[in-house]
Amino acid sequence: MLAAYPEGRKRSAVVPMLIYAQDETGAVTPELIAEVAKRCEVEPLQVDEVVGYYSMLHRKPLGKYHVQVCTNISCLLVGGEELYEHAKKKLGIGNKQVTADGQFSLEEVECMGACSWAPAVEINYDFHHYVTPERLDQLIDALRKAN
């Protein structure tokens, strides 16, 4: 990853390194910040600054399946909010919370680029389009069963 950037510009890898590492470790811990700082040859503070800025970076672990429901304008007009309310009830958790078994977390997210196929849900990195409450139930139930 560091090789992609020009000589002496290792800092450039900070954001991708954090997000890829978070996928492995589940959260951005102080240890991870220190490690990224070391590899990218910056101060830990400079990594810490970045962690707080980007909304996909989390300091606490998310669920194994992170359910992201978009309620931005295109989704809002076609039931995104209702879908999000449904997801809260279905999972029994609120925004940015994790189910007791650690399997699911929920987040109301901003536009994720699926406006013309709204409402949209992204579970981890998988997009789901034209999602209805019933479809969301199926998706969640299938993931529950897969465990």
């Binding site: 931005n72 304008i73 295109s74 901003e110 536009c111 680029g113 699926a114 406006c115």
Partner: peptide
């Protein structure tokens, strides 16, 4: 970085 709400074409 396509993020403007309403936009889903670069994808």
């Amino acid at each position: 970085d396509e993020s403007e709400p309403g936009t889903c074409k670069d994808r």
